[in-house]
Design a protein around this nucleic acid. Structure first.
Lengths: 247, 247
DNA sequence: CCTACCAATCTGGCCCTACCAAGAAAAGGG
DNA sequence: CCCTTTTCTTGGTAGGGCCAGATTGGTAGG
């Protein structure tokens, strides 16, 4: 669940995104050449090309053969995966993006969990129960359950039997990984999260859609709000020391 | 909206995914080394590394330094962007994935369009009206409006003022680009799509949420069903000639 | 002054070799 | 059989080189 790219590549991706931001490039604008970027960032062209391959795949840049590298969309408008990646790279989102993500998550999880009530199998329930047990143990031991939290939510979503829905929710959760980690440092919030998850399980077992929908709203909204608050606090603290180099 | 990666890189990505499928690798399994892949595919290690950077960013693979390349999730379970990429690469999805995508799209668009009714601005309406005009012209001239269709839907979603929701819907639409292209080859369907879009505009202008929700269900469901049917027909025709090389 | 053409230059696409350090596996010694 | 040591493998990175198309700037011609 941690940053996945190699340090060099992810560094170059981040520097490239910084370059775009710093120079306020807009859609269609051209980036410096690969060779230029490579010595600007002090890495080889190979590394630059790896980073650009990633940005291309994220639909952020577009490389036109023998012509140049062009911005396809602003980094903020790339796919959700690109937001997850940027979160991994340490980019912090503004409050609006965070609010939007919460709203989107509620929309998707509300429906996914509702479908889970209708379609959950015994296997799904067993899986959730197992996760719940692990969750309780971790909570009791004061361990950080950020990853397990995600896993539980995705397992519930998986009970909807709609794998696309699971994949839609995944980035919405992963976007806030950093905030979630901080969230679970609080013993009180750990306990609350455990209680919420137990309530989710009970409602899904009972196929009680109305309760599930209510739970999604309260759980996601309060949890996400807490995460958001922590994100903002952390972002401010970080902004204060961010130098922002570049010509 | 077309394939974005360079031919070589995308080729290598596709070959790697094929390798995974062909060898039925499961989560956590190890792929051949970069050097092995490079001469297996007849490309340089640089190209392999670019492809792996992409797969890494998609959270499909994970490269552990000095150890190996491991499958993080099955390619079918990667992020939505990875599905878009695979669609670009010509991979066809099974019927279940297509059905799931339709369901997910209905869920997201229903809520996004409902929010659009509440929050749309005059600017949003003007934008939609402009797109609608273009749409009508293209339809009249018998042109393929696949891209404009996507653009219109995303513009409606944008009227929800939730950019994350837009980005959630984007891959759900882009997944079916190929099918959509075929869809718009039919004059009858072009006309129907234009009518639907006009109805969307009217409902959103009137802030008529109930109608919009109904429209989403009928429009997406029937349109997507048509696309699906075309996809399956095309997939069968394609499967018949797919050789599937490899040791 | 404008246009059409042409050559030098720049750019992305790929290939190739080489080195490093940290794992993994094999070999060796007890 | 276990533990240590050596060797091999592997990803990470550097740096060079060639190709061919796109770009561009200058030049000759109208």
């Amino acid at each position: 669940m941690a940053p996945n790219l190699t340090s060099e590549t992810s560094d170059t991706v981040r520097k490239t995104l910084e370059y775009v931001r710093h120079h306020r490039l807009a859609k269609g604008d051209r980036l410096p050449s690969e060779r230029n970027l490579s010595d600007r960032f002090g890495v080889t062209r190979s590394s630059v090309r790896e980073a650009l391959a990633v940005l291309d795949a994220m639909r952020i840049t577009e490389r036109k053969a023998k012509s140049g590298i062009f911005l396809r969309t602003s980094p903020e408008d790339g796919g959700l995966d690109s937001l997850v990646m940027q979160a991994d790279l340490g980019v912090s989102f503004d409050a609006q993006v965070t609010r939007d993500a919460i709203e989107a998550r509620i929309i998707c999880e509300e429906q996914a969990f509702r479908l889970a009530c209708q379609r959950r199998t015994e296997v799904d329930l067993a899986k959730l129960e197992g996760l719940l047990d692990t969750y309780a143990v971790l909570a009791a031991n004061g361990r950080n359950m950020a990853d397990e939290d995600v896993e539980f939510h995705l397992a519930v979503a998986a009970a909807s039997q709609n794998r696309i829905l699971v994949r839609t929710i995944t980035p919405l959760m992963l976007m806030s990984t950093r905030g979630r980690r901080r969230y679970f440092e609080s013993a009180e919030l750990r306990q609350r999260s455990l209680d919420d998850h137990r309530a989710f399980f009970a409602a899904i077992e009972a196929r009680d859609e109305a309760t599930v929908v209510k739970l999604v709203h309260s759980h996601v909204h309060t949890a996400a709000a807490d995460i958001q608050a922590m994100n903002e606090a952390a972002a401010e603290a970080q902004d204060a020391v961010t130098p922002d180099p570049h010509d």
